[in-house]
Nucleic acid binder design. Structure first.
Lengths: 209, 209, 209, 209
DNA sequence: GATGAATGAGTTTTCATTCAT
DNA sequence: TATGAATGAAAACTCATTCAT
């Protein structure tokens, strides 16, 4: 016998978050519709307000959840167990595969930048999520330096932004890039080619000589 | 003597485009308000529809104008007159200064990517604007290779995307980056630091060894 | 005790339909105003969109309801119980009294013809409403023929169109006819005179000799 | 050598009237657009206001011209030269052929009835156009009575309305009738069948016994 | 006589949010 | 916890008409 679908706060909330992620990432904050989210979540609109306050707070929750997810996946890379070069390669690979498989996150950030990061700024959760990441990067760079394979004095934040910039920019702007360069950049081979290029660029950035 | 403010189609159109650029870049396509554009342009709303059809077409016109502008500025760099290394440095510098001074363009692209490049895809103008750019880049890379300072077989499109990625990504995502890394990335010194980092990264990408 | 005026979907829908019938018939589809309908219905405009979709669909609903009503009234005439001559007289009488008392229906049809029947064509409901009517007419004609009072081979659809034509045309075009013939055709006596004339015309059409 | 297209009041007016007839009859008074009329007429919108005042007055002008045209054609039938039966047949035939070839007039009247004949009521021209018509009909009926082929005391206005009703109603409501009876009533054979039926109906109405 | 730029009020439709049950 | 009816403000877009040249 099926459990009754009623009165299950946790599931309702999860449904709403999932639906909201879909809607927000598809249309951006401004283009997303509360009605559409409710329909996607198969719940009553009022539930959404009950659990999440309003559209802004809901967006913030979605963003928090999404940041948590990517940071968790990054943490699972176990970069500390890899030698520095491999760790960098792993990071590039991860950037491509994660954003390819989860393009919603890029689109969420896209929208959030358009909104000048209002939601992130309000979220203590998100703002305290990134120190570990910087520390992990810093430690990889340190180890590489110690091993004599990486240059010294590479700023981990700058490096991270470059790493993400080369990979993420391609994927997040893939629509405009495909259009202006008149080539489909979403094909598997195009993405593979790009990934190789990025690996090259990032390694050359850190390596000695 | 004041020129009469009335009955001047060219000026009206220019006012509308300018106002639309401001509004669209500030709030994105979805967040922009036709009423607000009309008010900014100090014209009657109907004029906007008269000259530009509708919100979509207006956005497209703004985008076309903006692409024209940046490509025109790029063309004025006279990269052919510089030696290859200098040309690359000039490109990095240009990327920073142009987008710093004209952040509207990045925000327009941001919005356009959220819309999956619908407007660019409709615009023949834009789609035929980029061949010259690729050719210029290719020629710089060729010259560097001939001079023995650049590696061979660097794809100009890949290179360009990387070049833009490292510079543009920082500036276009500056709000979220500032928030998550809890540092103000919009200060002059932060931008200078980033620019140096980018120059380093891009040169290392193309240089031999 | 008063029933509470709030939160009653059925009543709200009925109010909207009634108000829409009034507005559409008074001004035609194009002349009708959604705002005016909402005001007449004493409801919020959005309710109208919530329940009926848009102006077109609302018009269609009004039309369906109106067709249902007249066909229901026709069915209640119990023509099968009358002898053929009386049945015909009853039909003429009905045509006059119904359209006199419910001029909205004529005006709706007037508007719908101006729109080339777009709404009817979209409505399966309406298109399946008329077979019974034709069958009833056909059976009256058959009985009259069997009784030897009516001519043979009268097409029921042609006959029905003529029947309606002579009665309905007078009432539906009463404004232009009154104006061009410079007589008030809306007086009781004028309508009575017209009705007698129609009865004469229709009976002469079907009778033997 | 071509005459210059400029500064020709008569032609401009004629173009406007023709365009207005097209637009008004296609969409009705309310649905017609001044802009569209100007475009159809290939003239400047202001010309329309210059020559015809406003939308209402323009509609009235179109209506007057259209009534003039049909009355002129009717007058040319030379019914006085025909024997009464033939004259009646001629009238039926005329009704069909005229409205088939000039459906704009019906649509104009359709719209005008929706507007409760406001324009006709304002037009002295139209209101004085119909006496001759009634007189011609009356004279045909008189002659038929004198010849012993028509009944006596047939009211010419009633008769005329019936005559028009049976023919015009079919054509003016052809869209709704086709839809509800699910047959294409616009085919040549359908119109021929209807015309025969109408002739039968009208003759039976006037003939003795 | 002719042009087309300009206007203000209005039209349909949408949206985030709240209320009653 | 859940439902869906109800709201008011605002969104994009349109229209008849007038003004400046």
């Amino acid at each position: 016998m099926e459990k009754p679908a009623k009165r299950n706060a946790a599931r309702t909330k999860a449904q709403i978050l999932k639906a909201a992620l879909g809607e927000f990432s598809e249309f951006g904050y401004q283009g997303a519709r509360i009605d559409a989210i409710a329909k996607r979540a198969n719940i009553n609109k009022q539930m959404l307000y009950h659990y999440f306050g309003n559209k802004d707070d809901l967006f913030q929750s979605v963003l928090e959840q999404s940041y948590e997810k990517i940071r968790r996946h990054e943490a699972e890379l176990k970069l500390a167990d890899l030698d520095p070069i491999e760790a960098i390669q792993e990071l590039v690979k991860f950037g491509f595969s994660y954003h390819s498989k989860n393009p919603e996150f890029m689109r969420l950030l896209n929208s959030e930048n358009l909104q000048r990061a209002v939601h992130i700024k309000k979220s203590d959760k998100i703002r305290h999520m990134h120190k570990p990441l910087v520390e992990i990067i810093a430690s990889v760079l340190k180890r590489g330096e110690a091993d004599g394979v990486f240059r010294s004095n590479i700023d981990p934040v700058q490096f991270y932004i470059t790493l993400v910039g080369v990979t993420y920019f391609y994927l997040s702007n893939i629509h405009t890039l495909s259009a202006i360069f008149d080539q489909d950049m979403m094909t598997k081979s195009a993405i593979k080619e790009r990934q190789d290029h990025c690996e090259e660029a990032v390694l050359r950035l850190v390596r000695c000589q």
